[in-house]
Nucleic acid binder design. Structure first.
Length: 625
RNA sequence: GCCCUAGUAGCUCAGCCCGGCAGAGCGACGGUUUUGUAAACCGUUGGUCGGGGGUUCAAAUCCCCCCUAGGGCUCCA
């Protein structure tokens, strides 16, 4: 199909005024300098190209069809044809252009109201674009000329196509699925989170409310909105900060203590006049924060890669040292669309534990991938949430290494969704994601690992091989998701439990207060304090409800706060070694102090357990929310 | 960014349709009670009704603009 170039804008209004001729024989018009205004319309900026001269009728017909289709899509009945030479560098002759535009106008007339701006005049114009998803669109068939803004806009509007989807099981069984035909996957015998993920991937959206964590994060005095900042920047109260720090500590232990990564730190702010950074920022499609200081333009980093790659470019590495692992806890900033920010799920400011592994070759890269996969699987499992696994992989790579994929699935012990891409679209040939499913059926990407075969060459990250020759690395990018998303996912899991009739709770290692000791009267405050201090000495978090309230009320408030272990102490406990422990969701359990400590140790496991950020005496704790 | 919905005391919310003194519970504060496993009792305090403009004798209430949040669309390295 042949077609002129079109840039379509759904506008609240457009105003234009012909000012002076732009060529020797402009179209004759009445009223030079007269302002025309059209409200609520689809404006088609149109450029007729050289090649269109061959078949003017067909071009006009096709253009009219595209415009009509789009006018219907945005539900407008007015269109404005606006000659605009600047969408192409290969213009047709003016007389041919006018002819084609007039034919287009005629083809449109009858179906919609048509206005046409004069051809061959310098015109001033003012337009207000509505800005909804369909409000800006370009259409062209001509090949090449990628630099045109119009082509870029088109590329952005086109979703990834050509992927095949399948479900692979740990037994090596493959089920081809078609996202457009739900019957191909709905009855697969795999666990619910994977089905839910596939449904979301297929765009089967049910009507959802707000994810439950949005209310919980505030109710539990963890995290809240900060209207004095930008959208998607949150305040963390002491309890929320404790959970965030605990998650960061876990990320640190995995990366630095277990995997022996080198921990680094790089700046948040980068100059945009550095070509590689400008390039990276451009690829991020203007979703970076920009600011100008002292006439220099800067960008706030949206991931840790900027500074890391710069650093690695100057690092001298030998093949004997590989794989080299580098870890950074990376505060990151992304200018997500305002309507996109939801609770802890999508933020403009978040914390990303970023681990990069630099490997000698693909073989080592795959080994390293397996190491990370094993580690992150254990991490995800220890978070006590429901999740699904998805791989995205380029076709040739999947076909070559299918057995290896099966071996990865044996590690995680469940089937996964595999998206097979026909060709390489990004810098990676393979990545996978652990996706948490929230209380309303949405999914959130948590951990991801990406096998990158391109960036080392692009950024000059090299090592010396056995013969002393410089070679580019294979880079594994991996992120333990974002700390904030983990918090959200954990709260969502609690909400799911609650919806199923279970008592909602946080994992014990993340509970801001793990043990609350309640004295039956003020007489026993010191007894309670003694017990709490012994719990703290064992490395756990305990406090004492020393307020002048009834025991019932204190119990109730401990429950409302989701404290996992509650002890009421009085005369009886001062005389014996047994403690009545109220275990959240389980009921009363009488045990001695060692029994209590044993239970705490068992539930916390090998996960970090930071000291409390709150006073031991509850009467001294201000209310933050 | 667009569309829809919401914003009233520190918190949860009623009042708004149909304009006429700004309300309740919880919290906080003071007092009484010294409490044994999910809310003791009495009192006091508490407001830019999100912000700005307009209509009106009179606006939380009706109209317009803006801000913030939630949902949807879209986007998602």
């Amino acid at each position: 199909m042949n077609l002129m170039r079109l840039l379509l804008i759904h506008a609240d209004y457009i105003e234009f005024t012909a000012l002076e001729p732009a060529m020797p024989n402009p179209e004759r018009i009445e009223g030079v300098g007269k302002k025309e205004r059209v409200e609520e319309c689809l404006v088609a900026f149109s450029t007729v190209e050289k090649s269109d001269e061959e078949s003017p009728e067909e071009v006009a017909k096709n253009a009219a069809a595209i415009i009509l289709e789009h006018a219907a899509a945005v539900k407008t009945t007015k269109t404005v044809l606006y000659p605009y030479a600047h969408l192409s560098s290969s213009l047709s002759r003016p007389d041919a252009a006018v002819e084609i535009l007039k034919m287009t106008e005629d083809a449109l007339r009858g179906s919609v109201e048509v206005f046409r701006a004069p051809f061959g005049w310098y015109k001033s114009f003012e337009i207000r674009c509505k800005g909804h998803p369909l409000s800006e669109l370009s259409r062209t068939v001509t090949a090449g000329a990628k630099e045109a803004a119009a082509a870029e806009a088109e590329a952005e509007a086109t979703p990834a196509e050509g992927s095949e989807f399948l479900v692979l099981t740990p037994d090596g069984e493959e089920f081809r699925i078609d996202l457009a035909s739900p019957e191909t996957f709905l009855k697969l015998k795999v666990e619910a989170p994977l089905i839910q993920l596939i449904k979301n991937e297929a765009g089967m959206k049910e009507d959802r409310g707000a994810p439950a964590h949005v209310k919980l994060m505030k109710k539990l005095e963890l995290v809240d909105y900060e209207p004095a900042s930008d959208i998607g920047h949150f305040r963390f109260y002491p309890k929320g900060t404790l959970i965030k720090d605990s998650l960061e500590e876990l990320a640190y232990e995995i990366a630095v203590k277990d995997l022996k990564a080198f921990k680094i730190e790089t700046p948040f702010l980068y100059r945009l006049d550095e070509p590689d950074i400008a390039d990276q920022a451009a690829k991020f499609r203007e979703k970076d924060y920009r600011l100008t200081v002292d006439k220099k333009e800067f960008t706030l980093r949206f991931a840790g890669d900027f500074g890391l790659f710069r650093m690695m470019k100057g690092v001298t590495m030998s093949y004997r040292q590989l794989p080299v692992r580098v870890y950074e806890l990376s505060p990151s900033f992304r200018l997500e669309q305002s309507g996109e920010c939801v609770g802890l799920k999508r933020l403009r400011s978040f914390t990303m534990p970023d681990l990069h592994c630099f490997c000698a070759d693909l073989e080592q890269g795959r080994n390293e991938y397996t190491v990370l996969f094993r580690k992150y699987t254990r991490l995800t499992q220890s978070m006590e949430i429901e999740y699904a696994v998805a791989f995205r992989v380029v076709k040739y790579f999947y076909n070559e290494h299918r057995d290896w994929f099966v071996s990865l699935l044996r590690i995680v012990g469940k089937p996964a969704l595999i998206e097979v891409l026909p060709e390489m679209k990004h810098y990676w040939v393979l990545k996978h994601e652990y996706q948490a499913i929230d209380s309303v059926g949405g999914n959130t990407q948590l951990v991801t690992v990406q096998l990158d075969v391109e960036d080392a060459a692009r950024y000059g990250i090299e090592y010396a091989d056995e013969s002393g020759k410089k070679r580019g690395c294979i880079i594994l990018h991996s992120s333990l998701g974002s700390i904030e998303r983990w918090m959200g996912a954990i709260l969502e899991q609690a909400a799911r439990d609650q919806a199923r009739g279970k008592v909602p709770s946080l994992p014990v290692w993340l509970s801001p207060i793990q043990v609350r000791v309640i004295p039956v009267s003020s007489t026993y405050v010191e007894l309670a304090r003694g017990i709490a201090e012994r719990v703290v000495a064992e490395g756990f978090r305990a406090d004492v409800d020393d307020r002048e309230e009834s025991v019932s009320k204190k119990i109730r408030e401990a429950e409302v706060e989701w404290v996992p272990f509650v002890l009421v102490v009085g005369e009886k406990e001062s005389a014996s070694n047994s403690l009545p422990v109220r275990v959240r969701g389980e009921g009363m359990n009488v045990m001695d102090f060692a029994g209590l400590v044993g239970m705490l140790k068992e539930r916390v496991g090998d996960r970090p357990c930071l000291p409390s950020y709150l006073p031991m005496m509850l009467s001294m704790k201000p209310r933050f929310a």
